[in-house]
Amino acid sequence: MKIRSSEIVVSAINKSQYPSEGMPEIALVGRSNVGKSSIVNALLNRRNFARTSQTPGKTRTINFYLINKEFYFVDLPGYGYAKISKSEKDKWGVIMERYLEAREELCAIFLLVDIRHEPTADDKLMYEWIKHFGYDCTVIATKADKISRGQYQKHISIIRKKLQLEADEKIIPVSSSKKTGVEDLWEHIVAQYNSHGYEITVD
């Protein structure tokens, strides 16, 4: 995938702040510190384009990244950080539901989990929420460089079983530092956009 331009258009809280030009979107969601910003940076081949919050669990905005002036990556707020209060969790839920309940531009959601660990109850709840709102779900298994390739299938099987993924839902191991799986991920991203009737330029 040739990246000609990338920019953050808005960090939104309210629906009125969402982009309105009708460009397709793929959203990324996962636990705080699972590596969403690193994955976005790896996809765009930029080191510090997407920045990690200094206070995990506190970011409560939806970040819209416009790529090649054709489509968006949407970085959804992280969840599962133990130190946040119930009121903060409630705010997270409101912001997420507002975005997911009727976003026609949203083609698919990528759920990020750490390949080294069994998905948490929060990960399972997030997956169920994605399916409740009727979206396709792809799992990105982050930090793939932390285990050997020979261990991939074992860990992928654990993730699939724990989340109870549907048979056609993919798990893509990715290492943002080693760039492992980034090309496979791009192919899947383009396929997701195309399957929803959009034509994305790849070179």
Score class of each variant (00 low, 15 high):
N14K: 15
V9I: 15
K36C: 02
D136I: 11
L112C: 06
W186N: 07
I171E: 00
H132E: 13
S148H: 10
L185W: 06
L112M: 10
K170H: 10
C137K: 05
I95K: 14
R103I: 10
Y193G: 05
I95C: 14
D203R: 13
V34L: 03
N33T: 01
N194Y: 04
L163Y: 04
I172W: 04
K161W: 05
K162H: 09
S176E: 03
A102C: 05
I84A: 09
P56E: 12
V40E: 02
S177R: 09
F73Q: 03
E101K: 15
A102R: 11
S177L: 12
R47D: 10
G35M: 04
D114G: 08
E101I: 04
K58R: 15
K143D: 01
G197Y: 08
I8H: 04
I158K: 15
L100D: 04
L111I: 08
V10D: 02
H132G: 11
E104Y: 10
V94Q: 14
L66H: 05
I67G: 00
Y193T: 01
W186Q: 07
D123V: 03
A191V: 05
L125N: 13
N63R: 03
Y127S: 10
K178M: 09
V74A: 06
H196N: 14
I3L: 12
R98E: 15
S195P: 09
I171M: 06
Y18F: 15
G30H: 02
A167V: 11
V94P: 00
A167E: 13
M23Y: 15
S157G: 13
V10Y: 08
Q164H: 13
E104M: 13
S16R: 15
I3W: 08
Y99R: 13
G78E: 05
Y18K: 08
V190N: 00
G197Q: 11
T52F: 08
L111H: 12
S85T: 15
G30A: 10
M126W: 03
K179S: 05
K15W: 08
L111F: 10
I130Q: 06
T138G: 12
P77D: 09
Y152D: 05
L66Q: 03
V139N: 04
Q151C: 08
H196G: 00
W129N: 12
V113L: 03
I200C: 04
P19S: 06
R31M: 03
P56R: 08
R31E: 13
T120K: 11
R160V: 11
E128L: 13
E118V: 12
D145A: 00
R98F: 04
L76V: 02
S176N: 07
E128R: 14
I39G: 06
I95Y: 11
D122R: 00
C107H: 00
C137N: 08
K146W: 01
